[in-house]
Simulated assay, not measured.
Amino acid sequence: MAAKKKNGGGNGNNKENEDSTITVVLKVEMHCDGCASKIIKHLRCFQGVETVKADSDAGKVTVTGKVDPTKVRDNLAEKIRKKVELVSPQPKKEQENEKENKDAKANNKSENNKTQDKKTKDKEVVTTAVLKLALHCQGCLDRIGKTVLKTKGVQEMAIDKEKEMVTVKGTMDVKALAENLMEKLRGGLRWFLQRKTRRWWW
């Protein structure tokens, strides 16, 4: 019977330690008392928090309550989008290592996405096409401009009315653009040059 009583007392002490009130000190940049007030208001809503004090001059926030220090830090950092440093109590190494691993994985994923985006952009080669067109009137100019600008990949367009030439720059399919213009202008396209490959079409 005595042994059972001793074990029961031990479990009770462990539970008491888990539920004990602790003091958490955070270091965070605060420009004014307004910043401090917002932080206090936010942390008071955090589960388990009993009291919150903020010193804007010292850049220090003190929280007391039955809370997890790392969760308080991370929650505040996410809210104010600033770096929040846990001064005390110091987190366990296992928790910090886990957080660092998660951050490293997130950074690697971000870098991989950037690399993939760069490869995609590299595949889209920018070319310049010069087209010789029969520009009879303003209606022709309007029709050409509308057709060219609707073409996927077109970035810039310039029309030289005197020389009857249209210069188009972008990642578009030049041959498809020329065929589309020939259809719209009923054969008004005489030739075009794709400067990237120096190839001519009539």
Rank of each mutant, 00 (worst) to 15 (best):
H42F: 15
A134L: 10
L131M: 07
K6E: 12
K4H: 08
K132Q: 09
G59T: 01
M157D: 00
N7F: 00
K152D: 12
G48A: 03
G48F: 01
K118N: 11
N13S: 12
V166A: 05
A77H: 02
M165F: 05
E162C: 13
I22K: 09
E78V: 00
L141K: 06
K15W: 12
C35K: 15
G145E: 05
D74M: 06
G187D: 13
V126N: 15
E179Y: 11
M1Q: 00
T21C: 07
K119N: 12
N11E: 07
V148C: 09
L189H: 15
Q90D: 06
P89M: 08
K27I: 04
K105G: 05
G9P: 13
L185A: 04
K15E: 12
S20Y: 07
F192D: 14
K27L: 12
L86M: 08
V125L: 14
M157L: 03
V24H: 03
E16P: 04
C35Q: 15
K79H: 01
G145S: 14
V84Q: 06
G10C: 08
A129I: 04
M157T: 01
K163C: 10
G145Q: 13
K121F: 02
C140K: 14
A36T: 15
N101P: 06
T64V: 04
K102N: 01
V63S: 15
D74T: 02
K93I: 05
